[in-house]
């Protein structure tokens, strides 16, 4: 995938003087783009609007109405009914999963891109293909496997990998390592070989080459991938659904499945819960948008 790797290395911000001529664009393009943009914003704006209105007002006036005041009480109600805990659960799953994924992926990428192996390509195919499978295919065997892996009760109250954060972390890692390996190996291949040569002449061990030479050079790619993986793992719905049984232990993306059951008929609360779930991604979006997009286009293979 060196092609997609490279496309993002063209400085996109620079513009060409010829196509810079904006007057050539028909106004209809703007009409079209603006119309689509407005349509695109409606769902989130509507959710935000609904979440800020008191239930009493929407019950009286209907949801499609103005007036009745603005309130943050829906947010505090949702927050106090478990969302604080769900967010913490998400952090406890996402942070370790991203770190482990990047570490493992960089190890494999380093080995396959900096050394000549017989099975280089087969290995990469194995990793990348694993990333593309629908996870439901593995659900039954994974569940049964985790049920039968014993853990001491001090670590897991189920006595197995079920109903623990570990189980969810491990599955997220297994699913994401493939993509990161793929991106990082392409990235590392593009690093000049002389770097390794020089280190080898100095007698640096394999680990030192990885730790002190290659990894520092990969920081931009790691930063981009980390952003992307935080979002993806935060957004993972399925593994916690399958592996976690205790409601209070669910990460937020899976817990929103219970929103409709818990806040029956109260769309204001549902909207507030949805907004709480969106907020972390929106923060990342506005602060680290560039890294996210860079990570996405860097690999462009993600399914």
């Amino acid at each position: 995938m060196s092609a997609t790797l490279g496309t993002s290395s063209v400085p996109l911000g620079t513009s060409n003087p010829i196509t810079r001529n904006k007057s050539r664009n028909s106004p209809w393009i703007y009409v079209f783009l603006t119309a689509v943009a407005v349509l695109w914003l409606i769902p989130l704006v509507w959710t935000l609007y609904t979440s800020l209105r008191p239930n009493a007002a929407t019950t009286r006036l209907g949801y499609f109405s103005v007036g009745g005041g603005v309130t943050f009480s829906n947010f505090s109600t949702a927050w106090n009914s478990g969302f604080a805990g769900y967010l913490l659960n998400s952090a406890l799953i996402t942070v370790p999963a991203v770190i482990i994924t990047l570490f493992l992926a960089s190890c494999v990428a380093f080995a396959v891109s900096r050394f000549a192996w017989k099975f280089n390509v087969s290995l990469l195919i194995l990793f990348t293909a694993g990333n593309l499978l629908p996870p439901q295919i593995l659900a039954t065997p994974i569940y049964q496997l985790f049920k039968n892996i014993p853990l001491p009760l001090t670590v897991s109250d189920s006595g197995s990998l079920l109903n623990t954060y570990y189980g969810v972390i491990v599955m997220n890692v297994a699913f994401q390592v493939g993509f990161c390996t793929f991106v990082l190996s392409n990235y590392m291949k593009a690093l000049p070989d002389e770097l390794g040569e020089a280190a080898r002449v100095d007698g640096a061990s394999v680990w030192r080459q990885y730790r002190s030479i290659i990894m520092p050079l990969c920081r931009p790619a790691l930063g981009a991938l980390a952003t992307l993986e935080v979002i993806w793992i935060y957004n993972d719905f399925f593994w916690a659904l399958l592996l976690v049984q205790t409601g209070s232990r669910l990460p937020i993306t899976t817990a929103i499945n219970n929103l409709k059951g818990e806040f029956v008929n109260n769309y204001n609360l549902i909207a507030a819960g949805a907004m709480i779930t969106v907020i972390p991604t929106l923060i990342i979006y506005f602060v680290l948008q560039r890294q996210f997009v860079a990570g996405l286009t860097l690999g462009a293979s993600k399914g």
Binding site: S8, S9, V10, P11, L12, G13, V95, V98, I99, Y187, A190, L191, L217, R219, P220, A221, L222, G223, A224, A226, T227, L288, Q289, R290, Q291, V293, A294, T297, L298
Partner: peptide, 25 residues
């Protein structure tokens, strides 16, 4: 160049901010 990753949003990924970000994580 690899260390010059750039983004669609018109700005280069600033190496320092990446480092800072990596530190924060």
């Amino acid at each position: 160049m690899p260390e010059n990753r750039s983004s669609l949003f018109g700005a280069q990924v600033d190496r320092r901010s990446v480092l800072r970000y990596a530190g924060a994580s």
